[in-house]
Simulated assay, not measured.
Amino acid sequence: MVEVDAYLRDLIVKKELPGAVLHVQQKGSTVFHRAYGGFIDSNHQPHTMKTTTRFDIASLTKIMATLPSILWLVDNTPVELDHTIQTYIPEFVHREITIRQALTHMTGLPADLTPPVQRYEKRDVFSEVLNTERIHEPGKIVKYSDLGMILLGAVIEKVSSLPFSTFTKKVLYKPLGLTQTSFHPDQPLQVASTEWTKDRYLQGEVHDEKALHLGGASGSAGLFSTASDVGKFGSYFLYPETQTVLSHDLMRKARNHVAENRGMGFEVWSGKGTTLSCGRGWSAGSFGHTGFTGTSLWIDPQKELIVTFLTNVVQYGRKHNMKHIRPDLHSLIHAHFTN
């Protein structure tokens, strides 16, 4: 992993990344866990990144909170994947869209609300989501959408009669031993800060604007975690039999390819089409996800390889090189375990 380490150190020196933590597991063991760079906190003070630093993991929320919560409900309540969202959220205007379609990003809904939500404006985001017009027929086209995941977060709250943050902590994270994973972090000063806003860097406060307007915990974003916790979560999906919270069969189904490099919740590399952020070298069947703040989790079942890469790249703003950094890094790591 010498090349990987040098590559990441170089990115920090060149100011392409403020800070990062890389956590790599192979065949059930952690083989690399290192922190790089740092962050400037909300009080304008510099900090060195630690392997224990928590990050706003952005859209990894979709696979670490929303997906497993739905799988748990399917296994433990009358909820079924092919039930419509309207079954549980009657105010939703589209009666035909199903839970499965939301998980596979085939709802026909747009990617986002128009115009995009701003941090400091007043908007009823959930009402807008409920009433958003479709741009495609459901079940036909894969279109990555926060809106379907936000709706699933609402389904989880409705069925469980618990706030999403409470449900995930009680049903998922506590029994799975993910002690550093939660919405609304209780020690915000230990969280890597994200983007500059008005007069400070955001720290311990959700970066995603829609999630902020939805109270900080939504089906699309809002979760905070450490690299080791994200990696542990990934290991449960690689080895479902090592846990007893979720159905092993449903977990395996979630990581199967469905269409256009998508599974249920996860991106899944089919070996064809547009290259995913893990690069082309990863085995077909590799699955994972990315987050807007600069986070990712990738799992290669054939190599039994799990790579968690958490960064605070948006501290440098939204124009960055993550679309090149992620595949370059993951290709270097994969090559190390192939040679």
Rank of each mutant, 00 (worst) to 15 (best):
G234R: 00
G234K: 11
G234V: 03
G234S: 05
G234N: 03
G234Q: 10
S235H: 12
S235C: 02
S235Q: 15
S235I: 04
S235L: 08
S235A: 10
Y236H: 03
Y236V: 02
Y236S: 11
F237I: 07
F237G: 09
F237P: 08
L238C: 13
L238G: 06
Y239Q: 10
E241V: 11
T242D: 13
T242P: 15
T242V: 13
T242H: 15
T242F: 11
T242L: 14
T242N: 15
Q243F: 14
Q243H: 02
T244H: 15
T244G: 14
T244L: 12
V245S: 08
V245L: 07
L246I: 04
S247Y: 11
S247F: 11
H248R: 15
H248I: 13
H248L: 11
D249V: 13
D249G: 12
L250I: 15
M251L: 15
M251P: 01
M251G: 12
R252D: 09
R252E: 15
R252W: 03
R252C: 08
R252G: 07
K253D: 10
K253G: 11
A254K: 04
A254N: 09
A254D: 03
A254W: 07
R255S: 15
R255F: 03
R255M: 09
N256T: 13
N256I: 00
N256H: 10
N256K: 09
N256C: 08
H257E: 05
H257V: 04
H257T: 11
H257W: 06
V258Q: 12
V258L: 13
V258H: 13
A259N: 14
A259I: 13
E260N: 15
E260A: 12
E260Y: 12
N261A: 12
N261W: 05
N261I: 06
R262G: 04
R262W: 00
G263E: 05
G263R: 07
G263P: 01
G263Q: 09
M264R: 09
M264G: 09
M264F: 05
G265R: 11
G265N: 05
G265D: 03
G265K: 01
F266W: 12
F266T: 00
F266A: 08
E267C: 03
E267Y: 06
E267V: 08
E267Q: 02
E267F: 01
V268P: 05
V268E: 04
V268L: 00
V268H: 00
V268W: 03
W269S: 00
W269L: 02
W269Q: 02
W269E: 05
G271M: 07
G271R: 05
G271H: 01
G271F: 06
G271K: 09
K272F: 05
K272Q: 10
K272D: 03
G273S: 09
T274I: 08
T274R: 12
T274L: 09
T274E: 12
T274V: 07
T275D: 03
T275M: 07
T275C: 06
T275Q: 11
T275N: 01
L276F: 00
L276H: 04
L276V: 04
S277F: 10
S277N: 07
C278N: 10
C278I: 06
C278P: 06
C278R: 06
G279Q: 06
G279Y: 02
G279P: 09
G279C: 13
R280D: 10
R280N: 14
